[in-house]
Design a binder for these strands. Structure first.
Lengths: 329, 329
DNA sequence: CTGAAAGCGCTTACAG
DNA sequence: CTGAAAGCGCTTACAG
């Protein structure tokens, strides 16, 4: 029951460690006789041999591990699905994906002394110091955020920011429904402040383009009363359409309309973001905005693959943003 | 920009690799002069030295990594919070936590050739072959499921199964509200079949104990219409209280009551499980059952710590299950 | 207080 | 077709 090494397998099958390695890795150039191969495989199975990841990695100089770094804030099922897709695509290249939730201020450094991934994929913004450290250690860095973009490349980031476009789609829907004065239901959660900003910017921009007043922004918590307060504030300001930061916030607004006896969508239309499973179960069913994460997953897989092959990071695809029309707006 | 090793740091600071190691690890017994220490630290910082996780692990014979294996089915924010707590507790022992989502049939083996964790914590049931392989490789195995329990220990599993107790609490609440005939809203998702079984068993048991007929089980999907169909089925069978597999399913039932013009809770009372954030925002606010995962997290951390110290897995604490009373039941 | 040396388990030129 | 040997980067007795 003590640790089995490749030397044990070699001994048990009467060959050298070299041959064991050739067989177990199906090393391309090496041709091993069928009889030998079988003997090695048998011995390995019998002994329950599992190669040492550490030794493998040390010797090869790089690991087969891709680390996916997730943000502090709660990610929805969509992101989980995206990681699953990434894992599938990378499995074909023999790579494994592991996930790390960033925890407050603890730097990535601590983690990197426990594992040396081949590539780190960031779904959360990286600390520049961490990026430097990883690059220095020869770790590939792929990010869905722009701070890692190669300098010099004139990024159209502002114009193409998917967050901004989400806000745009929300506001346009509300305007198309006849809303004349918009409200924005923000979330007080500081961890997503950057996203709130991006989406809100889109709403503001749409309002300006459509000749509407700037949106009246109110923070809405996920308790029942917060939504009702917000609804009253909006109503007394003449707001007739609300874009919410996400579906949960939108659901809080909906709860608020009930408490304040405001009819949706006639007196107040509401649009969410994400299309979480329960959005369609709300009363009334929630109109929302959906982003295709499948394509993002494929893009991330491409980035990792490119980094694997020493190629530059491919251009980011335009993220699809789509309205899911239901009854609430 | 090439890889910096401890030898580079030694050279740059004019000491041996031994001393570098002592300083960087603050090795207990080793006393290094302050001047030397400073020089080493400076050089390491200047060169951007990061130790090789692979070499460390190979040399020490064990890694500082704890792998948390998550099930295939979507885990809620509660489980994420639990992992965060686990990571916090283990960080104090210098361990890092990484998460792996099991992917269909792919065995853990593939992953274990990329990393050799110190311990694997299973929040999903393990394949017995995987457990054998891990044990064989000297990896600690901790599971929230019972198949890993030490044989011989007479587990009170059936009696103490938290899933069963969830069902119990749901049914008892409905009965206390005056419901005379219960329905059960199951989910068709095969990945959680075992949980459905456990919770449903609790409901059945409570019905028997209370002298009620066995619950009428109906699968409810997360689309709008499925809930309405179920509600009609229940009503025509005289069901006046429904225990749902979880809050999302309960929300689908609630949507169904609206479509079928059935009043909640008077004509049909509904109880969910999980207390997801939007449960309190439903119409009417959803009565649900909540389980304390904080305690579970602490327990898992203890298990890992025990495994670290070569101690046996401590006894599993009784999982707290608590009713969150709201308007729906 | 500091250094020379061994060895963790693997893979891979290199030689037969 | 197969094996002896080097070496990946680290830590840790051991000797000074």
């Amino acid at each position: 029951m003590t640790k089995v090494t490749s030397a044990d397998v070699a001994r048990a099958s009467g060959v050298s460690r070299t041959t064991v390695s050739y067989v177990l890795n199906s090393t391309p150039g090496a041709s091993v006789s069928d009889a030998t191969r079988r003997r090695v495989l048998d011995a390995a199975a019998r002994l329950g041999y599992a190669p040492s990841a550490a030794a493998r990695t040390l010797r090869r100089g790089r690991s087969d591990l891709v680390l996916c770094v997730l943000p502090d804030w709660p990610v929805g099922p969509a992101v989980e699905a995206m990681i699953d897709r990434l894992a599938d695509e990378l499995a074909e290249r023999g790579m494994s994906v592991l996930v790390h939730h960033v925890r407050g201020e603890r730097p990535l450094t601590d983690l990197l002394r426990a594992v040396t991934p081949h590539t780190v994929v960031g779904l959360a913004p990286f600390d520049p110091a961490d990026v430097r450290a990883m690059r220095q250690a020869g770790i590939g860095v792929v990010s869905t955020f722009d701070e890692v973009a190669d300098a010099g490349e004139p990024t159209d980031a502002a114009a193409d920011d998917p967050q901004r476009r989400i806000g745009l789609v929300q506001a346009e829907r509300l305007a198309a429904r006849g809303c004349r004065r918009l409200g924005y239901a923000a979330t007080p959660d500081p961890r997503v402040a950057a996203f709130v900003e991006g989406r809100l910017a889109g709403v503001r921009e749409a309002c300006a383009a459509l000749g509407l007043a700037a949106p009246l922004v109110v923070d809405v918590g996920l308790d029942g009363s917060s939504g009702a307060d917000a609804v009253r504030t909006w109503r007394s300001a003449g707001v007739d359409g609300v874009a919410a930061y996400n579906d949960e916030v939108a659901l809080a607004v909906l709860a608020g309309t009930r408490a304040a006896s405001v009819t949706v969508p006639d007196a107040l239309a509401v649009v969410g973001v994400d299309d979480i499973p329960v959005a369609s179960l709300a009363s009334p069913p929630l109109t929302t905005v959906w982003q295709s994460l499948d394509r993002q997953a494929a893009y991330l897989a491409e980035c990792v693959t490119a980094s694997l092959d020493g190629l530059p990071q491919p251009p980011r695809p335009r993220q699809e943003v789509e309205l899911v029309p239901r009854a609430s707006a």
